[in-house]
Amino acid sequence: MVTAEGPTFVELARQALSSVEHGYDLLAPKFDRTPFRTPDAILDAVARQVQAMGVFDSGLDLCCGTGAGMGVLRQACRERITGVDVSAGMLAVGRRAVPETADGPHVAWVRADARALPFGPVFDLAVSFGAFGHFLPWEWPGLFAQVHAVLRPGGCFVFPIAAPARPGSSSYLAVLAFDAAMRVRNLLWRPPFVMYYRSFRLAPVRDELTRAGFTVHLRDLPELGRRPDGSPCFRLVVAACD
């Protein structure tokens, strides 16, 4: 995480002691050189699945950050794509990283809270990558209702979700330690920085999506690996807006 090109330990500490919005403003110039950016392998796997679903007119990247997911939308949408994020710093980096091209969809960037989206039902596809840890479980109903409200009938909300790490594994212990450190930090310091990796689990997420009015389907992403029991390490959640 602390590399020659990435953020220094001091910069990471300053970000961790800030609010979510200001923390990402601080991290934005070096965010793409941290492990927090969604890996290209995940983006490519999702892009292949989305393209197989057909061609969409308009797409929304929810909590777009520096725009990694905008590349997925650019391949799938023919008219316009929009990235929305609460961090002005992340959006500024995204504008430079994902410029509009003459032969591609119109690209827009909007600063807004995902829990209060400033759109009507104008999108056919919504995607999101790596952002759900910023929302506590009690916020999911409102968040998913917002996404449902900005999708046209027949639109889809698509995102990858990882299988839980095996208890006792190095990944499990690392995530457990991170979430525990974050809880202690938020007990001792204000403003809070909400980011919990273990809370976003498939079964309760699927239930909340269904309650929000979506019909939920799952697609395996086998190219991202399999667990010892043969199940995929990642699945794609496809929530259809009827």
Score class of each variant (00 low, 15 high):
1 M>S: 10
13 A>S: 15
17 L>K: 12
17 L>E: 12
17 L>Y: 15
18 S>D: 15
19 S>V: 00
20 V>C: 02
21 E>M: 06
22 H>I: 11
23 G>C: 11
26 L>Q: 11
27 L>K: 08
28 A>M: 05
31 F>E: 05
32 D>M: 02
34 T>W: 01
34 T>D: 10
37 R>H: 13
38 T>E: 04
38 T>V: 06
38 T>C: 06
38 T>N: 06
39 P>L: 12
41 A>K: 15
45 A>V: 14
46 V>L: 05
48 R>K: 10
48 R>P: 01
50 V>R: 04
53 M>P: 01
54 G>D: 00
56 F>M: 00
60 L>W: 13
60 L>H: 12
63 C>L: 08
63 C>Y: 09
65 G>Y: 04
70 M>L: 15
74 R>F: 05
75 Q>I: 00
75 Q>N: 12
76 A>Y: 09
77 C>Y: 02
79 E>Q: 09
80 R>F: 00
80 R>Q: 08
81 I>C: 04
81 I>P: 06
81 I>K: 03
82 T>K: 03
84 V>T: 12
84 V>N: 04
85 D>R: 07
85 D>C: 08
87 S>F: 08
89 G>P: 14
91 L>F: 03
94 G>Q: 00
95 R>W: 02
95 R>A: 14
96 R>L: 14
100 E>Y: 02
106 H>W: 08
108 A>I: 09
109 W>A: 08
111 R>M: 07
113 D>M: 10
115 R>D: 10
117 L>A: 02
117 L>Y: 02
121 P>V: 03
122 V>I: 06
123 F>D: 05
128 S>T: 15
128 S>I: 04
131 A>Y: 00
133 G>N: 12
134 H>T: 09
135 F>H: 08
139 E>L: 07
139 E>N: 09
141 P>C: 07
143 L>W: 09
146 Q>M: 07
146 Q>W: 03
147 V>S: 13
147 V>C: 04
148 H>Q: 13
148 H>Y: 13
149 A>F: 10
151 L>S: 02
156 C>Q: 11
158 V>T: 07
159 F>C: 09
160 P>F: 13
160 P>K: 01
161 I>Y: 06
162 A>G: 15
164 P>Q: 01
164 P>S: 09
164 P>A: 02
164 P>I: 03
165 A>Y: 12
166 R>T: 15
168 G>V: 05
169 S>A: 11
169 S>M: 08
170 S>H: 02
175 V>R: 08
176 L>W: 13
178 F>Y: 15
179 D>A: 06
179 D>N: 08
184 V>G: 00
191 P>C: 04
195 M>Q: 15
197 Y>V: 06
198 R>W: 05
199 S>W: 14
201 R>G: 10
202 L>R: 09
203 A>D: 08
204 P>Q: 02
205 V>R: 00
206 R>D: 00
207 D>V: 04
209 L>I: 09
210 T>W: 00
211 R>V: 05
213 G>N: 02
217 H>S: 10
217 H>I: 00
218 L>F: 10
220 D>V: 06
225 G>I: 10
227 R>M: 15
227 R>P: 09
227 R>T: 14
232 P>K: 01
234 F>H: 13
235 R>D: 10
236 L>V: 03
237 V>E: 06
237 V>W: 03
242 D>C: 11
242 D>K: 01
